[in-house]
Design a protein around this nucleic acid. Sequence first.
RNA 1: UGGCCUAUGGUGUAAUUGGCAACACAGCUGGUUUUGGUCCAGUCGUUCUAGGUUCGAGUCCUAGUAGGCCAACCA
Length: 561
Amino acid sequence: MSEERESLNFLEHIIEEDLQTGYKKAQLRFRFPPEPNGYLHIGHASSICLNFGLGLRYGAPVNLRFDDTNPAKEEQEFVDAIKRDVEWLGYHWDTERYASDYFDQLYDWAVLLIKEGKAYIDSQSSEEMATQKGTPTEAGSASPFRNRAVEENLELFESMKAGKFEEGTHVLRAKIDMSSSNMLMRDPIMYRILHKAHHRTNTDWCIYPMYDWTHGESDYIEQVSHSFCTLEFAMHRDLYDWFLDQVYEENKMRPKQREFARRNLSHTVVSKRKLAKLVESGVVSSWDDPRMPTISGLRRRGYTPQSIRNFADTIGIAKRENLIDVSLLEFHVRDHLNKIAPRVMGVLNPLKVVLTNYPEGEEEWLEAENNPGDENAGSRKVPFSRELYIEQEDFKEEANRKFFRLKLGGEVRLKNGYIIKADSCTKDTNGNITEVQCTYDPKSKSGSGSEESLRKVKGTLHWVSVKHALEAEIRIYDRLFTDESPDTHKDKDFIDFVNPESLEVITGYLEPSLKNVQIEDRVQFQRLGYFCVDPDSTAEKIVFNKTVGLRDTWAKITEKG
RNA sequence: UGGCCUAUGGUGUAAUUGGCAACACAGCUGGUUUUGGUCCAGUCGUUCUAGGUUCGAGUCCUAGUAGGCCAACCA
């Protein structure tokens, strides 16, 4: 038994260290804290995999906590969608929590701070407060209300809560340090007045706590040991700790915020504003359009939860800037789908082949393996007849030796079938090839064991019997953006980089075994790629999404010329 | 003119905490193959720069350079 030293990421190192210096393993607890103001995307998926992955690794519970402190943006619809996505990824949260569960506690604590002279009601406009805040290089100045009497503060705060004031008239601020080098410590706002109904607390409240006041205290209430967030919150840590100091009791777990770099994926955008723009402007059809980097989009595209988890696992976690090539994500779907997707045949760009020596009206059903890499996958029958479709790209009148496909006078094997030879072809008035006449070798039947069947020919083509072919709508996707980092250009809008050819809808001809596919079924169309049945699919009209193509060495050869 | 963070192959992460720079992807060469897929083998690095500490530095120190972040009644 060789014990291999596992390589840990820097967050795991922090946890390991904490475990050495006093934390008990049983005290470990993590959380995934989305704001329910939109759909989860691939970036969230990484965060989910990180937190829940840590939970699995350490046998620690992970809470799903909705950071719902801004009723102006949040909706139940998003709560539901987020839960569905986390579940789909295959994770189980320990408890489902809401920051709004803690509104009472937060309010009580705020009152405590006021009583201790550590918070006050400011009655200035936001503009006045902004100018007082100073700049990164200049200290701020005190609000004229900074030394308001405790009694007055208490009274005003209560009146705020009671709904006696308009929005924007008063806020509760923590009294910290107006000259701190950290702008966030210059008397941050804890509460603001918002006369808006909340998706859970309805109209119970008209004052709502700010993120900074809420997050650390929520972690504390839930006794989260490690609160991981992205780097842009690094500055918030001082505040997180300050707020915690105000309520912390010795015998409790003191949550620790640590920050990691968010992972950027090439050729896409993830900001909610930008994704919304793609939907609103009609560039994509919906939030779950298969081109979207949302989890629901990836799901519809045919990605498997495991492939996304594997991806998150491989890219790891660190603190430096990064731009992960989307091809790595594509590698992981291929890798997983290669193992689980049944192989089938479908022709997307048909060219008719007629086997002149195959009896008219006759047909036979050939044995076809479902997955050559998986012995247990079994086999199925595919119909063969005189008239077949092959891909247009698989035939050329003349071609050089590198072209392993069909050419006049050349031979090729039809997958699971016979070796055929192209004798002639017919063209339309524009010179386009419309039909190829071939002869087949009846003794070369796949699996027959005959000498002829064992002959090696350079190429093997997929095909479909014309008479038996199933028509289906095939949606072929390409990258949504032509630029690897579309939203980082100062002089150009990300919309300018939208790939006009990101969607192509065609009719494909499939082997009849696909007749009864179900939504979300995934298959490999041999030699083409992986495809997934779209929810738009019906019994009358099957719709497939192309998840990702196969690795294509031939394309590279042709590119090079 | 302030503060915080970061810097390792084309990309993303490691490096037993100071001891021969590793893994995956991509690339390139071959082999296998009834998918130009899969699989197998091989190949591809002056650890941002300059100093310093040390027998020994990717790791520690100093300075520099580059990039990112920091002022919303957002999270």
